[in-house]
Design a binder for these strands. Structure first.
Lengths: 158, 158
DNA sequence: TATGAAAGACTCTCTTA
DNA sequence: TAAGAGAGTCTTTCATA
């Protein structure tokens, strides 16, 4: 175990509640964990300070915003590429994720665009045109069965 | 434009605020958009009813929960596979995403596990062992440069 | 749809344990 | 760390426009 304090059962329960629905009054969380609201507030603040809670997001439907098509693009780059290539990739239209992956000097992007036409345009004009990009392999998503940020909290080890 | 009402500038602004930090008092949103809190509440409810807002999530640090290693696994399956294979894949340890992808009868999984040892175990025991799975190709994430759910809201077309 | 009023609920700080 | 008290704020419904 490390220097930071541990995550106890109450923290655990608080996080579980926030994983289900984060936009919920503090007092309601307090009720569910059976504690005073002030104590729960204090705990949530500490979880934020300790960066165990990293933020609160809204999950929006991408369709009304013309981003109904999702694709994963594996970008292979020259090993001597400029160090800021990753940063340039984060700025590509529709990019939600940029991960450096092991293996063939590459990055894996997750992006949301309107349709195949736009995907083609983005690949050609915004990705392949970057200096150092050797090739791309694209997986187009037909159907998303599961997509969540939830973690299994029962794997915490003190 | 479709049957549903449009997303106007005020909705737009509300969504933008919630994309930045969703756990924020309604009254604060109202202040930022310059409207009465009751009107903003009404709008947020309608956005939820219309499924434009699909939920509110907390973003947790995966490290304290022993899920610091992320990997993408492309699973190729027999074309005659049982229809519920996708559902079985959603239940694999550490799986956060399951997407059906075009091309080679496959699924793309995003998973978070403790380390390489666990990844190996999950691949062997929980994925390859499923009936209908032909092969897997794994991309291990070394470093995540960007990971967000935010959409570019300026692409809405009425 | 928006506002404003009003009752009740919630937040958040501070004190005490 | 937790509880409780209290001042101030927020939520939510309803009447009205």
């Amino acid at each position: 175990m490390d220097i930071k304090r541990t995550i106890d059962d109450i923290d655990h329960k608080i996080l579980q509640i926030l994983q289900e629905k984060s936009r919920i009054p503090n007092a309601e969380v307090a009720r569910q964990v059976g504690m005073a609201p002030s104590a729960v507030l204090e705990r949530i603040r500490k979880l934020e300070d300790r960066q165990i809670i990293q933020g609160y997001e809204v999950r929006l439907n991408p369709h009304p915003f013309n981003q109904g098509l999702m694709a994963f693009v594996l970008v292979t780059v020259q090993s001597a590429s400029r160090a800021d290539l990753a940063t340039l990739l984060t700025q590509v239209t529709g990019v939600q994720d940029v991960h450096q992956v092991a293996g063939e000097d590459g990055y894996l992007l997750k992006l949301r665009v309107a349709d195949n036409a736009e995907l083609g345009r983005v690949l050609a004009d915004e990705i392949c045109s970057l200096a150092g990009v050797l090739q791309t392999k694209t997986n187009i998503v037909l159907n998303t069965i599961k997509e969540t940020r939830k973690l299994d909290l029962n794997r915490y080890s003190s």
